[in-house]
Write a protein that binds this DNA or RNA. Structure first.
Lengths: 259, 259
DNA sequence: CCTTGTACTCTACCATGGTAGAATGTCAAT
DNA sequence: ATTGACATTCTACCATGGTAGAGTACAAGG
């Protein structure tokens, strides 16, 4: 039960052309000169390619304006061009890739205008979610939320930024889902990609996490008390805070940024 | 200069299997027993297929749960399966098609929950757009807007529903673009698809168009005066009105609706 | 009658080859 | 030195064939 799939053509040229770095985050230490981590041929391939490329772009493993050709990627990843192409199309839909017909596909530049609009869309939606949720949460959910906040506190105490970001995402996703708005979360996730590259660049300022945690608390309390206006205002302030450093970046990273 | 493309394989089996109706809205009278209108082989094909299918679904030419198989569509439309597949993937992203791996692709049922959430997303965004726009329009744009409103008035006078809906779309799109929020309009368009099928079903109630026009005027005036709160409230009321008839439909169309 | 196994048919999914078009470099003509 | 034609070499895009898997019909066995 090893090669159930992969019976047909393509000797698979061993994925060796110009050892590039598209490995996703394999947490456990990988052996020394590991080539590119192969995809799982038992699972749908296109989503795997999409996820890997998305991660490589948002973590700046591949930089803006870098070429992402169907053929090269398919060789590196050991799959055919079709799923690569489908992944690129989806990334282009989300604004992370520019496809120029008959010319090539390239990592999209960080367009500050797009980042700001993504911020606008996210804020508009999440403020509305918070307002709708105010006073309409199950006790079950409120206790979940507080457990999450407690974990955030310990993440802050240990200065574990990655863990905090993970809990932050769970916090916001949880609000959407408790409100029965899963599609909204999908939209938020989609536009958030534009901001993720910027967030990845922003240096971890000391004390920033404390601010974010405090804002999460304010949002939670306003929702619990049923104060829709306050919940919305706190959410708005919180989401503005997240991207506050964009102006700082504008100078430092002019070479990655368009507009 | 007729067959510049289309040199390679596929005799193209004349697109005759089970004359189905996927013609898009060819306004001019087409000859008698015209088969399916062929795609333009000089232009990118996948978007044409997408647009045609989207239109067929939102105008209920193809009904919920109807099969949309890659192969059959490619035969009917005289193209290969690849662009059909890409169009179906995009439609699935937008919730108009359900793709079940190894089973088939089907027109998605009208899920009232999804329709309501689409309404929520649209309202959240457009209220924010109206608020942001209040007091920040160019005189140029305001006169454009009033020209549009005047045309809406004549469309109402002539009871030309299609023309009114066209102007309505231009009105809302214009607000987004004047605010510099083109991506937001794309999101709105995408979620609006869920509502379009319902709107298409709603019978033209007499006097309804007058209400919508009056609301457009209220929104415009509040924006012109720079009254953000009022603009938002009018927009909210307006967008709620658009879908007010959903409850009426729930009974009449139980066979098309899920949940 | 109900279950189980087994061909058979259908699907979406992936691999892969061919095509036109865009960019670039070369070289002759101006 | 500049321009224009042509060849070369890329690209994304489309066509098409093969594959595994999910249903279904039906026969054999309970």
């Amino acid at each position: 039960m090893e090669e159930k799939r992969r019976k047909l053509g393509a000797p698979i040229p061993d994925a060796q052309p110009s050892a590039t770095l598209l490995d996703s985050g394999s947490v456990a230490g990988s052996p020394a000169a590991a080539a590119v981590e192969p995809v799982n041929p038992r699972l749908p391939i296109a989503p795997q390619i999409y996820e890997r490329l998305r991660r490589a772009i948002t973590t700046l493993i591949v930089l803006p304006s870098e070429a992402l050709s169907e053929k090269e990627l398919s060789l590196q990843l050991g799959v055919s061009r079709t799923p690569v192409r489908e992944a690129l199309i989806r990334l282009a839909d989300e604004g992370l890739v520019d496809i120029l017909p008959q010319r090539g596909s390239f990592v999209a530049p960080i367009r500050l205008r797009d980042v700001e609009e993504a911020q606008f869309i996210r804020e508009s939606l999440e403020v509305a979610v918070a307002r709708r949720l105010a006073g309409h949460c199950s006790p079950r959910f409120l206790s979940e939320l507080k457990l999450n906040l407690a974990r955030q506190e310990s993440a802050v105490a240990e200065q574990d930024r990655d863990f905090f970001l993970e809990l932050d995402e769970a916090f916001h996703r949880g609000l959407c889902e408790e409100a029965g708005l899963s599609k909204s979360w999908r939209v938020i996730q989609s536009v958030k990609l534009q901001m993720d590259r910027v967030r990845y660049l922003s240096l971890p300022e000391p004390g920033h996490l404390d601010v974010l945690l405090a804002q999460h608390r304010q949002i939670t309390e306003a929702i619990e008390r049923g104060q829709a206006d306050e919940a919305g205002l706190h959410m708005s302030a919180h989401l503005k805070e997240v991207l506050g450093s964009a102006n700082l970046l504008r100078q430092k990273l002019a070479h990655l940024i368009e507009s």
